[in-house]
Design a protein around this nucleic acid. Structure first.
Length: 196
DNA sequence: GGATCGATCGGCT
DNA sequence: GCCGATCGATCCG
């Protein structure tokens, strides 16, 4: 299984977002593997993007977004949920891809334990759900997903053909007309693990 | 120091 | 479909 290297992530964010579909997110917990195919993502690009955490400019919270590609940006939302992004594009330019849903592959029983034994379709279908299933929280903010010793990384999966890729506006965002309408959500058409 | 609010989820009506 | 949970970052004073 080959891991995606930094040069995969250090490209245009929309290209990376599209190509992340079908790749496999892997989390190592004490040697055991929890993983799933990425089936839904959203892109957040630049300070001009009003829906992005980088819109107010560089702060302590969003600092990871300004760093090099291939790092995890993890934040706490609504005081209780975590969301995982992967930083993209060039260092100094704030851009990242929010992982919104996975199709579970490995470690399903462990994920169910972490998710209160919910049905398979609710294990990892949502940005905070997949973080809970894979034990991802703020201590992984700033983790290098391309380091050899990484406990969280992406492996090459199955290519998703263009006819199976759909786009839409992003979910749950605030901002101007552009932020609300730009089609920067990418998902696998018909996949039952896509959120909502 | 204090008020505000969020890239969500799950339970309830 | 609606609403409450829960807390840290951010902003204002």
């Amino acid at each position: 299984m080959s891991r995606l290297e930094r040069d995969f992530f250090a490209r245009d964010t929309l290209v990376v977002a599209r190509e992340l579909l079908g790749q496999r997110l892997v989390r190592l917990i004490g040697g055991t593997r929890l993983s799933g195919y990425i089936v839904e993502v959203e892109a957040y690009i630049g300070e001009d993007d009003q829906a992005s955490h980088a819109h107010p400019g560089r702060t302590a919270r969003n600092a990871t977004m300004y760093g090099p590609a291939g790092y995890a940006y993890v934040y706490l939302i609504y005081g209780m949920h975590h969301c995982l992004n992967i930083v993209t594009d060039r260092e100094g330019y704030p851009a990242a891809i929010l992982l919104r849903a996975l199709e579970p592959v490995e470690g399903i029983a462990e994920m169910q334990t972490r998710r209160g034994h919910r049905p398979l379709t609710q294990l990892t279908s949502g940005p905070a759900r997949l973080c809970q299933a894979l034990a991802i929280d703020r201590h992984l903010d700033g983790a290098d997903m391309c380091a050899p010793e990484a406990q969280l990384f992406v492996e090459r999966g199955l290519p998703v053909p263009d006819e199976c890729v759909a786009t839409s506006p992003r979910i749950g965002v605030r901002g101007d007309e552009r932020a609300l309408t730009v089609p920067w959500r990418f998902y696998v058409r018909g996949n039952s693990y896509v959120s909502r």
